[in-house]
Design a protein around this nucleic acid. Sequence first.
DNA 1: TATTGTTATACTCTATAACTATA
DNA 2: TATAGTTATAGAGTATAACAATA
Lengths: 189, 189
Amino acid sequence: MPTPPILKTPRPVATETGASLPDAPGQPLPTKARRERASPAKNAARAVDTVDSSYLQSLMGYNARRAALSIIELFLERLAPYGLKPVDFSVMSTICHNPGVTSRQLCATLNLLPPNLVGLIQSLQSRGLIERKPHPHDGRAVGLHATPKGHDLMVQAEQTATELELEKTAKLTPAQRKTLLALLQKIYL
Amino acid sequence: MPTPPILKTPRPVATETGASLPDAPGQPLPTKARRERASPAKNAARAVDTVDSSYLQSLMGYNARRAALSIIELFLERLAPYGLKPVDFSVMSTICHNPGVTSRQLCATLNLLPPNLVGLIQSLQSRGLIERKPHPHDGRAVGLHATPKGHDLMVQAEQTATELELEKTAKLTPAQRKTLLALLQKIYL
DNA sequence: TATTGTTATACTCTATAACTATA
DNA sequence: TATAGTTATAGAGTATAACAATA
């Protein structure tokens, strides 16, 4: 089992300013003078040339988040012409593939909170992308359906999303890509 | 090359209410009457029993985001006793492993925006977890250093984070976990 | 009594413009 | 002129409590 790199940086000794290593008084201090001329500040310390983030890179949460944000960044750019952000896209896609799905089902599937879905649904409806029809056997619920306009939009949007994803995962072989999807689902499903 | 499931739901025909399939007038309408009794609403449609999200599950961005959020959810819970959210943790960890790192370097490494880091740094400093020392050879920059208190906190916090991650990835073998980390880094690095 | 959908609202996160001081 | 750090602020995302209608 690979042990992740745990905080192995030496714990800093509690040296206050000039508390330890006091200057020898009365001496010309050539060494320290030169050092202070090179480093203008009084309380200086070593600088960092290249940042080591190997510990964070051993964490799944960190890597998953960074990878997700990297993809979402391009997603926002490419899907902007469709007026779809990631959540809108997920909602529309799920409605298209599940005609008659309810808000509650959408929330459960996409891990959204009901109050936050209300505005999204209203927006998609006012854009003429979805319709709301009475639920066949539950008067409280409302079935969501994509309009022909919404359906056509999503055919294009899903095409764009799939292309964008293949670009972002260009360093992966098809087999690696499939593996990655399966392993990620083992975490959240 | 595996082709992801593209929107294959049949595009809904533009049938208005009763426009197509009109009832034969003068007929007893037993079939339709029974159907309407079972479904009380006038404009009803089929209900969805189980939601199909196979298309979204073919997208790397969707899976990476869902996996990240799943881990972060537990992270927030377990790291709350330390008063650390994911960003605080990443910042503190990077400072601990890179004594003297600057704000700008933190931003570049962790993909943060400078204005959003200011408050974080001030908060960590006021908690006595980090110190700000002049940069050795750049009067504009400030080197960040963990205090002994901050260092001790992070030893515990990193231990907790690593444990939590192993729980969340319990369905993965060590080899799969290593593979997953490497593949994710191929996307965002 | 429990659930669907909704409103109002607060809190957090993220992003942009502009300023200062130093290089 | 360019960069490090900062301020102020706007916008988006996420969260809880409470309500009406229906099961």
